[in-house]
């Protein structure tokens, strides 16, 4: 599955990373090398093998429905790029 420059631009956009033509070209070279490494997998027959998401075969633990958190807005917003009236500010969201 060879990558092309359009793939690079598409995935960069999906990942919300601005990329110029020159970066796209050098990224293409490097990513193609990495994908070449990954391609080795395709030679393996994996039919019927259950995918492994976690190393331990365990069940999700459940948390009691009890409020444990307190308001820390001031602390959290002290490190925010832009806030006002307790809100995080971003350029206008258009629907």
């Amino acid at each position: 599955m060879a990558l092309n420059i359009e793939d690079i631009k598409r995935i960069a956009h999906l990942a919300r990373i601005e990329i110029n033509e020159q970066e796209a070209a050098s990224t293409l070279t490097k990513l193609s090398g990495i994908l070449g490494l990954i391609e080795q997998m395709q030679a393996v027959n994996t039919e019927g093998i259950v995918p492994m998401s976690h190393s331990q075969d365990l069940a999700q633990r459940l948390r009691e429905d009890v409020v444990t958190e307190v308001n820390q807005r001031e602390t959290f917003q002290a490190i925010a790029p832009m806030t006002e009236h307790g809100l995080y500010l971003v350029p206008k969201v258009i629907e």
């Binding site: 990954i38 395709q42 994996t46 492994m52």
Partner: peptide, 17 residues
């Protein structure tokens, strides 16, 4: 691409384990 890469990798992960 999910099946060819991610799913496949998770299957081989089990073989490795």
């Amino acid at each position: 691409y999910y099946d060819a890469y991610y799913l496949k990798a998770q299957q081989i992960r089990r073989l490795i384990a």
